[in-house]
């Protein structure tokens, strides 16, 4: 009984940490898909890039951890802004197939570049000393870094919620998600809004990739291997909401960790089956508007 309780706590804790990382990575994808209707399969590329930027800064430049994380966010946000202006923006009105192919093309290129620079192996993660130990809480030990991850992600979620619900930018995003033509006609500059939102979403992905490097290893196949999970979070949560991906990411993080812990012979099987079930039950996702 004691053992079971202990593993229960452990699974919940690690699942939570994993789920929060999934959330930080995927929330940007959910917003861009909801806002611009763009099927961006290359979203994982930004997460991977964030991971590489942070690890390079730490491993070979000796940068302090907070600076490296901030650097990952800024570098990827800026880089993605350029990409959006140069390439993505031209395909907003194109069909789904074009968008899918274009972003698969980006994945191929990113994978190649990553392998060229860093080789095929996962990058080692060196955390600073103060992140390494364990925290004692209610008579149990929890890894400090995971606790930090959870708290930090919650802070980001709160900040995002505030941004979308309480700021002018948020009001514009919500208006544009609801009805783009209407938003445009009342003077919202959707082009700029899209660029900013896209780069913020990619920056968040980078943040998630960097912080989660310990959980989701940074290696060239990253954008291919984990895409399914990011997309599941978005699709199951529902497009254009903040709450959807949050709930979905937690569900998936915890369920996946639990399955792999207790019934490893099933692996990720359960997650995929559950996704299929949920999407059939609600094609628009848990919190999305019903598909028409």
């Amino acid at each position: 009984m004691q053992d079971f309780l202990s593993s229960l706590v452990s699974v919940a804790f690690h699942g939570l940490a994993y789920g929060m990382i999934l959330y930080v990575i995927s929330v940007g994808l959910s917003v861009t898909m909801g806002l611009m209707g763009f099927a961006n399969l290359a979203h994982g590329v930004f997460a991977m890039a964030g991971g590489y930027v942070m690890l390079t800064a730490i491993n070979s430049q000796g940068a302090p951890f907070p600076l490296a994380v901030a650097g990952a966010f800024v570098a990827v946000a800026l880089g993605s802004m350029v990409l959006e202006r140069l390439l993505y923006a031209r395909l907003y009105t194109a069909g789904e197939l074009e968008q899918v192919l274009f972003t698969i093309g980006l994945i191929f290129m990113a994978v190649a570049v990553a392998r060229l620079i860093y080789g095929a192996l996962p990058q080692p993660v060196h955390l600073p000393e103060y992140m390494k130990g364990q925290l004692r809480f209610l008579g149990r030990d929890f890894p400090t870094y995971r606790v930090f991850l959870i708290l930090f992600s919650i802070a980001i979620a709160a900040l995002l919620w505030f941004g979308v619900e309480r700021t002018r930018w948020g009001a514009m995003v919500r208006a544009a998600v609801d009805n783009r033509a209407m938003a445009q006609s009342v003077g919202v500059n959707t082009t700029r809004l899209f660029t900013l939102t896209f780069s913020l979403g990619s920056g968040l992905a980078a943040l998630g990739g960097a912080l989660g490097a310990d959980i989701i290893a940074i290696q060239p196949t990253y954008p291919f291997e984990h895409l399914v999970y990011f997309l599941i979070v978005v699709a199951v949560g529902g497009l254009g909401t903040l709450r959807g991906p949050f709930v979905a990411a937690l569900l998936i993080g915890v369920a996946d960790t639990a399955c792999k812990y207790w019934i490893p012979e099933l692996g990720a099987f359960f997650i995929f089956a559950a996704t299929i079930g949920i999407l059939l039950w609600r094609p628009g996702g848990l919190y999305g508007r019903a598909a028409t």
């Binding site: 099927a39 399914v228 978005v234 699709a235 995929f272 996704t275 299929i276 999407l279 094609p283 598909a291």
Partner: peptide
Amino acid sequence: RTRGLALLMLTLAITSL
């Protein structure tokens, strides 16, 4: 029965499964 993103996701989920 589904369209768009849901369909894309379902096809991906099936092959992953």
